[in-house]
């Protein structure tokens, strides 16, 4: 990767209680590209996004965004840095007391002094891009899951951020919304020249739009490369994940005592 680096994660350690989530993760997110971070459920992908966004503090290691160490910044500078970022949440996280229009207008209203007419133009342009200009007066509770996520996408890019973090953008979508979202993310990214970090475990969709992919498992980067090199990777872990094989190095069964002993255990010794 010779592209300039937008986000650099160095030797990141993080734990919750006694569980180590990350044990030395190193990532480099190139400028203006879509970088996907993939891995089985429960590997802490969302946690990684929260660490990059400065919402969680690592036990050790650094996250540098454009050269600034996110976790050394004061609360004020951190909020300033976040204005250059957009984040698309898994649930959409639209503000339930504002309608679609005001949700998209929110970042503009709080961070700019633009006149109302201009705010309106920008919001309508963003809503047009996600195909929901006609839904501007609906409340979040009246939207379907797919529509909510598209509104959230419009809101995430309302301020034309340099960096967008996508948290599981395809989860729980029907095939049509999924296709729409894949296209939208790709299109928005190209049109605005964004740097995107996408956390996902929808392999097919993610590999189709990502420029570079990191696969995380057991708290470390297990493999990384372009979608094409990962597709032909020989490592058993990578193969199991990329090709969706049910059993392999990541076992199908949660650790349990022997099945035979468990079934035939005498009454009184049930665990």
């Amino acid at each position: 990767m010779d592209d300039p680096i937008m986000v650099e994660v160095k030797d990141l350690h993080f734990s919750r209680g006694n569980t180590d989530i990350f044990r030395g993760v190193d990532l480099q997110i190139p400028l203006g590209k879509i970088t996907a971070i993939m891995g089985p459920s429960g590997t802490g992908k969302t946690t990684l996004l929260k660490l990059i966004g400065g919402q969680l503090i690592p036990d050790r290691g650094q996250v540098l965004i454009d050269g600034q160490d996110v976790h050394q910044l004061s609360r004020r500078s951190l909020f300033k840095l976040r204005r250059r970022m957009g984040m698309l949440f898994q649930s959409g996280a639209l503000f339930s007391d504002l309608d679609v229009f005001e949700n998209v207008a929110f970042p503009l209203r709080v961070h700019t002094e633009l006149p109302n007419a201009m705010v309106r133009d920008i919001v309508l342009m963003k809503l047009q891009a996600v195909g929901l200009r006609g839904a501007r007066h609906l409340m979040p509770s009246e939207l379907s899951g797919g529509m909510a996520r598209r509104v959230a996408l419009a809101r995430a890019v309302a301020l034309d951020p340099e960096l967008v973090l996508y948290d599981e953008p395809f989860v729980g979508q029907d095939p049509i919304s999924m296709g729409v979202l894949v296209q939208l993310i790709k299109k928005v990214n190209q049109a605005l020249g964004l740097t995107a970090v996408m956390v996902s475990h929808d392999i097919k969709e993610t590999l189709s739009i990502a420029d570079y992919v990191y696969i995380i498992a057991d708290g470390q980067v297990m493999a990384h490369g372009t979608p094409r090199t990962l597709d032909v990777n020989d490592d058993a872990h990578v193969r199991q994940f990329v090709h969706g094989e049910p059993d392999g190095p990541v076992p199908f069964h949660y650790p349990a005592p022997d099945f035979y002993d468990d079934i035939l255990a005498p009454a009184g010794q049930f665990s």
Partner: peptide, 18 residues
């Protein structure tokens, strides 16, 4: 609490509003 559960508080933080 419901705002927190639906990530509205987090998304507000990420938009850069305290």
């Amino acid at each position: 609490g419901l705002m927190k559960a639906t990530e509205q508080l987090t998304s507000m933080e990420m938009i850069g509003v305290d």
